[in-house]
């Protein structure tokens, strides 16, 4: 397959809560190639979100090495991490996480604001992306005026705003009913197959996980099993 785009080597994440230490990740090794669709499964509290957040540069490991495109991000400043997040990574969350004061298209355009795109470019791309998730007729609706599935599709469109290489989805269907979840999954799969986006997706649903090329099983902060589909 293609080049390795993300590599985790012996990654530890330790949360200190007063005297108590929580080992959320305990030496995770993981490597993901360009264009891959990887699912992460595991019981609640096993460290899935922690792992994905670290890949997404939202957090840095307590120990170990995370390379994006061959660069170690463990020692980058918050500003540099934000740059990488903005350009290379698109997030999709379980709770959709749209900004409630902004309309669908404004939400989709917001990542482009932080990258300094012109208003014209933002509107053009925003419209294209909403069309991609079949929401062009909901452009000026606020999140509260959209269904869960529609909100998640807006979030998918937003994750694509700056044309990132990697999409990180943390339980994207977790708040949706089965058929709506399937619809959202269809869009994610289309992104992987047609646009060649690398996708890392956390899920509890083995049916959803099976859509991936590969499933990684996490337990107690360690990868205990890998399954190739």
């Amino acid at each position: 397959m293609n080049r390795t785009i993300i590599k985790l080597e012996n990654v530890w994440k330790i949360y200190k809560m007063g005297e108590v230490k929580v080992n959320a990740l305990r030496g995770v090794d993981l490597s993901i190639k360009e264009g891959e669709f990887v699912s992460i499964m595991g019981p609640s509290g096993s460290g899935k979100s922690t792992c994905v957040n670290m890949v997404g540069c939202l957090d840095v490991p307590s120990k170990g090495r995370i390379s994006l495109d061959g660069h170690n991000i463990a020692h980058l400043s918050e500003s540099e991490l934000a740059q990488i997040r903005g350009r290379k990574i698109g997030f999709i969350f379980q709770q959709f996480n749209l900004i409630p004061t902004l309309t669908a298209i404004e939400n989709v355009m917001l990542p482009m604001v932080f990258q300094g795109y012109s208003q014209e470019d933002r509107i053009k791309r925003g419209k294209e992306l909403l069309a991609l998730v079949e929401l062009q007729d909901r452009m000026h609706h606020r999140p509260t005026e959209l269904s869960g599935g529609q909100q998640q599709r807006v979030a998918i469109a937003r994750s694509l705003a700056n044309n990132p290489e990697v999409i990180l989805a943390d339980e994207p269907t977790g708040n949706l009913d089965t058929s709506t979840g399937k619809n959202v999954m269809d869009f994610l799969m289309k992104l992987n197959r047609k646009e060649g986006k690398t996708i890392i997706m956390v899920t509890h649903d083995s049916y959803v996980a099976n859509a991936a090329n590969r499933v990684e099983y996490l337990k107690d902060g360690k990868i205990i099993k890998t399954k190739h589909n």
Partner: peptide, 16 residues
């Protein structure tokens, strides 16, 4: 707070 988290996750720097 949550909104700030969201904005940071989509590329907002501290300065932004």
């Amino acid at each position: 707070t949550k909104e700030i988290g969201i904005m940071k996750s989509i590329g907002a720097k501290n300065e932004d």
